[in-house]
Design a protein around this nucleic acid. Sequence first.
DNA 1: ACCCAGGCCTGGA
DNA 2: TCCAGGCATGGG
Length: 275
Amino acid sequence: MKVKSKNFNIKQIADSGQCFRMKQIEENKFGLVAYGRYLELIQVDDETVELSCDEVEFQQIWENYFDLTYYYGAIVADLVTGEDSFLKEAAEYGKGIRILRQEPFEMLISFIISQNKNIPSIKQCITRICETYGETKHYGEGSQIEYHTFPTPEKLAAAEKEELRALKLGYRDEYIIRASQAVQSGSINLPELMLCSHEEAVSALKNIHGIGDKVANCISLYGLHHIEAFPIDVWIKKVLSEIYQNSFSVDRYQGYAGIVQQYMFYYKRYLDGAR
DNA sequence: ACCCAGGCCTGGA
DNA sequence: TCCAGGCATGGG
């Protein structure tokens, strides 16, 4: 089925650093694993995306996953008509980005892995984790496409440190096991953190060994959908110092700073030629 | 050989 | 409270 929106660009979302499980299959065609399912997406034109699912599955899963009931056009319009020239360009450049509603546990682990790594390396680590501990499923006519779901907390909580080391996770092995055990035991309750405030969520997340301010903010934004979160990584630091001389006011964008942060991140990486 | 990547932890000023 | 160094790993 097809979705029409001026603010829905698959390539931009895949390259925005929030999702590590979208894989480009062809020009304008991507494959994605989430919520135990596989989905293919085709960017038909600037305003049209075709999804390989029926209406029912769309309404049950993907409409929510891509946050399609939220109108990003209003925020883009506000920024491109505003007086901040950097954000004006950034919003125009990344106007097809949306903040996905990904699975909280997957985001918890993914952003623990993300520390001190570049995006291609993060993707490789997560792929290996899914292949090793996830469920193997099949998709399509003749089920010729094999895919791997993200593992459950129970699976990762029971993993051995040496096993994870073999997946090239480095010193993060113990962080991952302990965080998974915290979820499994209920000492951290992700659905609950989704209902409480962003600040409460961040402070709870930071109690987990290996989660500091930046990673906690990423989990809050991408895993719990607290869109007021404003994660500051090396790229955002560069923006804040180089563009704003460290005088950027997040408060100006209260309530949706996370979306502004995404435009900044995506545009700055483009400007600096990151890959 | 060095430096960096969607950083965090520990120990010492 | 702030800072330096260490930490696994891969890529430029």
